[in-house]
Amino acid sequence: MADDKGNTGAAATGRGTQQAENALRQGADQLRNQMGNMADVAGMSAKVSQEMIQRSGQNFEMMKRIAETMTSGARSAAAECAEYAKHSAKRQSEMMQQLASARSPNDVLDIQNRYLQDNLKELLSFSERLSRLSADKAKEASERLDNKG
């Protein structure tokens, strides 16, 4: 009987040890799963952050190209304005010379009439060039926006 009690005690100890090992394995598995989940979340977070940084860089580059296009347009528009002012000053100087050599009031009226008509034509031409330039640059900026990749 003493042998039976020893075997029963040893069996109970073995079962207890087995249960403790199982509990430790389950705990280790749960810890491993939680750590894996945390690593997955951290990895996803890093991936999202990296993607946001990349997209921000792409957006910045696109905005830089559009700004360069618009700056180029502004320079071209300024050059057109300077050219218009130069021609306008030249026409005014020519008109003043013609007025100085006018021989009659009718000559003065004819000179002024031509001057006004020429100025209006030049102004309309200038306006057309400026509008085309503006439309071309807006189209170019839009195309850069559409082709942002």
Rank of each mutant, 00 (worst) to 15 (best):
T8W: 02
V48I: 13
T69S: 15
N37D: 11
E21C: 03
L124W: 01
T71S: 14
E94I: 05
D136Q: 08
Q58D: 07
G43N: 12
S131I: 02
A77N: 12
D118P: 05
R114M: 03
R25I: 12
D4E: 07
G9E: 08
E122H: 12
Q18W: 00
A100S: 11
G9S: 08
N22F: 09
A78K: 13
L24F: 04
F60Q: 12
M35S: 11
E143G: 03
R91P: 03
Q92A: 14
S125G: 09
A82W: 05
D118A: 08
S72I: 03
R103T: 09
N37E: 14
L124M: 11
M95R: 13
K90Q: 15
K86P: 03
A74P: 04
T69A: 15
A89I: 03
C81I: 11
L31N: 12
M70Y: 15
C81Q: 15
R25N: 14
N7C: 01
K137Q: 05
E140L: 10
D118S: 10
Q117V: 08
L24M: 11
Q92D: 15
G149T: 03
A135G: 04
R25C: 03
V41A: 09
H87W: 11
S101R: 07
E128Q: 10
M70S: 08
Q26P: 02
G14H: 02
R103Y: 03
S88H: 05
A42Y: 06
E80R: 10
L120N: 10
N37K: 00
D40W: 00
T13D: 13
L31W: 02
S127V: 05
M96H: 05
E51F: 05
G14D: 14
S101F: 06
Q34N: 13
A67C: 04
M96V: 09
V48E: 06
G16D: 15
A102I: 06
N33E: 10
Q97S: 10
Q58L: 06
Q26C: 02
A46I: 01
Q50D: 14
C81S: 15
K47N: 08
L133H: 11
S104P: 01
A12G: 00
G57R: 08
Y115V: 01
A100V: 01
Q54Y: 06
D40N: 09
S131N: 08
A20P: 01
Y84N: 12
D146Q: 12
N33T: 14
